[in-house]
């Protein structure tokens, strides 16, 4: 029980769960510990919940890569695992300064503000992407995960 309690407190410290969620989990732990007739399965389920939450991906402070993982498990299974350095994002934004004037004018005519793009704080953008998580499950046949690490 102490181990589960420690895990919950660590998750609050790391920001994986909110204080309210931690309170509920601690409450369940406490009621499970005090009751004399709590089923073994119920305690195991609670421990599994805590372990599952603890195993979730931690949010990196300074993400360096964008990961895209696709698993297609239908008849013709395909696995795609892509890791793209976020430094490419920084470099790509800086490349806008090298565009010829004519190209810049044509891009701006399409409504894209290159000036604002070049002034974008890429470090702030990348840190904002740290919490990006996209999980798509289609009938256990296609699984897509996108996140930063």
């Amino acid at each position: 029980m102490d181990e589960n309690r420690m895990k919950i407190l660590e998750m609050v410290a790391e920001g994986k769960v909110s204080v309210e969620e931690a309170q509920k989990l601690l409450g369940r732990l406490q009621s499970g510990g005090e009751a004399t007739t709590v089923a073994v399965g119920e305690r195991a389920a609670l421990a599994a919940d805590v372990s599952l939450l603890a195993a979730e991906r931690p949010i990196p402070k300074h993400p360096k890569f964008l990961r895209v993982i696709v698993n297609v498990s239908e008849d013709e299974a395909v696995k795609v695992n892509i890791r793209v350095p976020l430094a490419l994002l920084r470099t790509g934004i800086k490349l806008t300064a090298l565009l010829p004037q004519q190209a810049r004018e044509q891009i701006e005519q399409q409504g894209i503000n290159l000036e604002a793009l070049s002034q974008l704080d890429t470090d702030e953008l990348i840190e904002a992407l740290a919490a990006l998580t996209v999980d798509v499950d289609v009938e256990n046949a296609v699984a897509v995960r996108i996140f930063c690490e």
Binding site: K64, F65, D75, E76, A77, V78, K79, V80, N81, I82, R83, V84, P85, A87, L88, R90, T91, K94, L95
Partner: peptide, 17 residues
């Protein structure tokens, strides 16, 4: 050169059935 340097860590894995 910066663009080349930014490619460090790139990983693309595609596995078919």
């Amino acid at each position: 050169v910066r663009l080349l340097g930014a490619l460090r860590g790139l990983r693309v894995d595609v596995d078919a059935h």
